[in-house]
Amino acid sequence: MSRIKSFAAGLGLAAFLSAGTAFAGDAESCKKVRLSDVGWTDIQATTGVASVLLTALGYEPEVIQLSVPVTYASLKNNDLDVFLGNWMPSMTADIKDYTAEGSVETIGVNLEGAGYGIVVPSYVAAGGVNTLTDLGKFKDKFGAKIYGIEAGNDGNRIILDMISKPENNLEGFELVESSEAGMLTQAEQSIKGNEWIAFLGWTPHPVMGAMNLTYLDGMGDSGFGAATVSTNVRKGYVAECPNVGKFIGNLKFNLDMEGVMMDAILKGSDANSAATEWLKANSDAATPWLAGVTTFDGGDAAAAVQKALGG
């Protein structure tokens, strides 16, 4: 090949590579998307939705099971990319140092209208337990126990802090740490026997929603009460991976959609299957999530999702 032909061929190759880069959705380093699953059914559902759609767009989602503290440490250390479960204001203490130093970024609220706090069966509320301090008036009926979920959870920490404060009238109470499933089993058994129980509750949740529960008042500035859920990413993620960052930032959920998927998960479905079935049944739901988004290689996002879901 002559020097001129070789030079021309080189220009052609450079133009081809340049065009490929221009139309690509994200850099190759962005193809794997690492998401945290902290074991809560609602976050399993939303992470399932994200994973199914990311796969359809040509990304490789990796869901890693981590506690809340390890989730934030992993975001800081660049060992994790995305967390869809920043419940606020109850997780203020968990995230504030990372936010202050800029190692973890909040890119938007993905759920509004949530609730979080200590709940009792409504028949217990009718029996005189409506505020936090009322629990201590009936210490023996509760067995001096409040049931929580996994150790390290923000809700457990708040309850422990409440027990430690004399003004809350909870002297002698203990927090029983378990898991979401273990706590719910205990609650269902107690309610079936018309027994008194207090435990950590949240909305959305299909099982808790079917239990006829009452949130206790008098939580002060603990972080319990009305809640929102935000999306966190590691520092610089959206700038580094703007296409997938745009998609993650677009994700907005509501109580009804989460409730349907959570119910399926609690009945034995894995999160991705529950999300896939919900997306198939709600074909227009992904439209706003795909606004301004392409596939990983720069293709039509809506067409790729439709094809992946069998549309």
Rank of each mutant, 00 (worst) to 15 (best):
V293N: 07
E258P: 02
G245Y: 08
A264L: 07
S179G: 09
E177W: 00
L251M: 09
L251Y: 05
G182W: 02
G20F: 11
G39Y: 00
T133M: 13
D284V: 07
P89T: 06
E167V: 04
A281F: 05
T228W: 11
I248T: 15
Y147H: 02
Q186K: 15
T99L: 12
G220D: 14
H205G: 08
T131Y: 12
N86G: 01
L84M: 14
F142Y: 08
G117V: 02
G10K: 13
T47L: 02
G127D: 14
D300M: 09
D161N: 15
G311P: 00
G10E: 07
G220N: 13
A303D: 13
A198W: 05
D26M: 08
S29K: 14
E167W: 01
M91A: 03
G128H: 11
P166S: 14
M261S: 11
L11W: 15
C241K: 04
G152M: 13
N130T: 14
S18F: 15
G209P: 06
I4P: 06
A15N: 10
D94H: 09
A144Q: 15
M262Q: 13
G182H: 06
S29R: 12
V124A: 04
L17Y: 09
N194T: 14
V129K: 08
V229Y: 07
D79W: 01
Q186T: 09
L160R: 10
F23A: 02
L309E: 12
L175E: 12
M208A: 15
F23E: 04
V68Q: 03
L290F: 02
G128E: 09
D221E: 14
P206M: 03
S29D: 08
N168L: 05
G115N: 03
S90K: 06
F138G: 03
N232I: 03
L54G: 13
T276K: 08
K96F: 04
I146G: 07
A50D: 01
L66N: 03
P204I: 05
D263G: 11
L75F: 08
P61S: 11
N168R: 07
I159N: 08
M211A: 15
S29L: 10
T287D: 15
I149Y: 02
S122R: 13
G310V: 13
T71L: 02
W87S: 04
Y116E: 07
M219Y: 05
